[in-house]
C-alpha cells in the first residue's frame, strides 16, 4: 500500500467509469446520507409534527372519527389536573432522581473496584453485562416472582434476617421504590461500563505523583480521579436520566397499564400510554406528550449546562 497524503482532487483522471460513477462520486455526501435522512423525516419528523397538531384537537375513540380544533384546552386540562397529572409528574421526578443518584454512586464504587486488573476480570464483566441485555419485560416478570409477597424469595430473605415481610410491588407505598430497585439492578451495569471506559483513558501520572507525595487513597480519589472523571460521569448521568424518565417496560410488566389499582406507579410515560391506547383519547394524550417532552428538554438542557460548567472548572 503506497502511503500518500495527496488530496483527492490531485487524483489522476479515472480511466474506467461511466458518467454514472462520476455523478455518484461528485454527490457521494448526499447519496450516502439522503436515504437515512428521508427515513428520519418520514418516520420521526412528520409524526412529531402530527402529534403537535393532534395536541390541539379533540381527537378520540377512533382514528377515523373527525376531530375539531380546541386550542389549548387539552393543555389547560392537564395542567389543572391534580388527580393524575401532577402526581405522575412527581413520581417521574422521584423515580428518575432516586434511580439516577443510586446508579451513579453504586456504579462509580463498582467501577473503581473493578478498575485494576485481576484474575477472572473478563468473566466478571460478562456477568455485569447480563442484566443490561436481558429483555426488560422478562426482567419485570422475574422480579414479580422474587417480590411476590407470599412465595417470593425477597420475603423469605427478610424473614431469615428477622425483618418484617413487605408487600413490595403489590404495596401502594412500596411499589415505586421496588421499581427503582429493579431499575438500579438493570441499569447500574451501564454506568459501570461507561465509567470503566472513562477510567481506562485517564492519565496515570497525576495519580502516581500524588501517591509518591504521600496522598492516601481517598485524597487521590477526591482530588485527582473524580475531577478527571467528571465529564464521563456527566455523560453517564445524561444518558441514564433520559432513559429513566421514559421507563415503560418494567412498570407495565409489574404494575400493568394503569401503574397499579391506585396508579401508585403511574409515571408520565405510563399516563401517556394509558390515555392514548387505553382510553383512546389521542388529542389529550398528544398534549400530555408535548408537556412531557418539554420537561425532558428542560432537564436535559440543565444537565448539559451543568456539564459545560464542569468542563470549565
Amino acid at each position: 500500500m503506497t502511503t500518500t497524503s495527496h488530496p483527492s482532487y490531485l487524483a489522476p483522471k479515472r480511466r474506467r467509469g461511466s458518467g454514472l460513477t462520476t455523478w455518484a462520486d461528485r454527490h457521494i455526501k448526499w447519496l450516502f446520507t439522503a436515504p437515512a435522512i428521508v427515513f428520519v423525516a418520514l418516520l420521526i419528523i412528520f409524526p412529531i409534527a402530527y402529534t403537535v397538531f393532534l395536541s390541539f384537537t379533540d381527537s378520540a375513540s377512533s382514528v377515523t372519527r373527525p376531530f375539531k380544533f380546541v386550542g389549548f384546552e387539552n393543555y389547560a386540562t392537564w395542567l389543572t389536573d391534580f388527580e393524575r397529572f401532577w402526581p405522575a409528574v412527581g413520581r417521574t421526578a422521584y423515580f428518575t432522581i432516586t434511580a439516577l443518584v443510586i446508579e451513579l454512586v453504586l456504579g462509580l464504587a463498582i467501577a473503581l473496584l473493578l478498575r485494576k486488573t485481576f484474575r477472572g476480570q473478563s468473566i466478571v464483566r460478562v456477568f455485569i453485562l447480563l442484566p443490561l441485555v436481558a429483555t426488560p419485560v422478562a426482567v419485570g416478570m422475574m422480579w414479580l416472582l422474587i417480590f411476590e409477597p407470599s412465595i417470593g424469595f425477597a420475603n423469605v430473605l427478610m424473614k431469615s434476617l428477622g425483618l418484617p415481610a413487605q408487600l413490595w410491588l403489590s404495596g401502594t407505598d412500596t411499589a415505586l421504590n421496588t421499581i427503582v430497585f429493579i431499575d438500579v439492578w438493570q441499569w447500574t451495569p451501564m454506568v459501570i461500563l461507561i465509567l470503566l471506559a472513562g477510567l481506562s483513558t485517564l492519565p496515570e501520572e497525576p495519580d502516581e505523583a500524588a501517591r509518591v507525595d504521600g496522598a492516601n487513597a481517598w485524597q487521590r480519589f477526591r482530588h485527582i480521579t473524580l475531577p478527571l472523571l467528571m465529564p464521563t460521569l456527566a455523560a453517564a448521568a445524561i444518558l441514564r436520566s433520559i432513559d429513566a424518565m421514559k421507563t415503560f417496560d418494567i412498570i407495565y410488566a409489574t404494575k400493568g397499564r394503569t401503574g397499579g389499582s391506585n396508579n401508585e406507579a403511574e409515571t408520565l410515560n405510563m399516563l401517556a400510554y394509558n390515555e392514548s391506547f387505553g382510553n383512546s383519547q389521542y388529542g389529550s394524550a398528544a398534549a400530555l406528550l408535548m408537556l412531557f417532552l418539554m420537561f425532558i428538554i428542560i432537564i436535559l438542557t440543565a444537565l448539559t449546562i451543568l456539564r459545560s460548567k464542569g468542563h470549565r472548572a
Binding site: I44, I48, V63, A285, L293, I296, I297
Partner: peptide, 20 residues
Amino acid sequence: LARVIPGVSLLIPWYFLFSQ
C-alpha cells in the same frame, strides 16, 4: 433526538398512519 423522544409520541401518529 431519537433517544430523547418518548416512543408513545411517535406511536400515536404511526398508529393513525398504519390504520389508514
